[in-house]
């Protein structure tokens, strides 16, 4: 058989065929609502975020300090052992300069780009990253390997959500040393 010799299905429609109603269509917006149980690990994670802290979980078998926290170690396949707070600072593993919103709509010319990043959190096992946003930095200044610190919402505005951290901002070496010294566990 050769594809070239076959009559292939698939009738292409232009977007104007929809707009001008050349074809019949029907619409549906499903009401797909959920209330997912946070469970032990994520429940505690969110509760600590509300307090302005990031908490991780340790597995004594593989000695990993895991973020986001989990009640079982997916590699050792056993329960994890204890909680530990980690820093609210980290290192940019990778980043993007996003001009597109979640639904593929474009950000307007006056809207600044979004800068999502994978941030390896200090105090967790090397490589333990989380997805979050960078802020207070121009797109041209972002670098892989740069040190960043969480910028938290005001305590009264926090709800126990990943968005209790507004974004991570760059830290200068001196400032970071001072902050680390003053930080309470």
């Amino acid at each position: 058989m050769k594809l070239e010799d076959c009559k292939l299905g698939g009738t292409h429609l232009k977007s104007s065929d929809f707009e001008k109603c050349k074809v019949l269509t029907t619409e549906w917006t499903p009401n797909l609502g959920y209330a997912w149980d946070n469970g032990v690990a994520i429940g505690r994670y969110l509760a600590e975020l509300k307090e302005g802290k990031i908490i991780a979980r340790i597995c004594h078998e593989c000695h990993r300090i895991m973020l986001p926290p989990r009640m079982f170690c997916e590699l050792c396949f056993r329960p994890t052992d204890e909680w530990t707070y980690v820093e609210d600072t980290g290192v940019v593993n990778t980043f993007s300069i996003a001009r597109v919103n979640w639904d593929a709509s474009r950000r307007g010319p006056k809207e600044p780009p979004l800068i999502p990043a994978v941030i390896e959190i200090d105090g967790a096992t090397k490589g333990m990253g989380i997805l979050h946003m960078l802020g207070e930095i121009g797109p041209d200044d972002v670098k892989i390997g740069m040190k960043v610190r969480a910028v938290w919402k005001k305590p009264e505005d926090r709800t126990g959500a990943i968005t209790d951290i507004l974004y991570f901002k760059p830290v200068r070496a001196a400032a970071s040393k001072k902050a680390a010294a003053g930080r309470k566990r």
Binding site: E27, T29, N31, Y34, N38, V40, P79
Partner: peptide, 26 residues
């Protein structure tokens, strides 16, 4: 797991949806 919830006031949940809309051809 070795640590479980033991108070009715502890459990929490997170709400969300799947925000999609569809147009079907016939």
């Amino acid at each position: 797991i070795t640590e479980k919830m033991t108070k009715t006031t502890t459990p929490t949940h997170w709400e969300g949806d799947i925000p999609v809309r569809f147009v079907y051809t016939y």
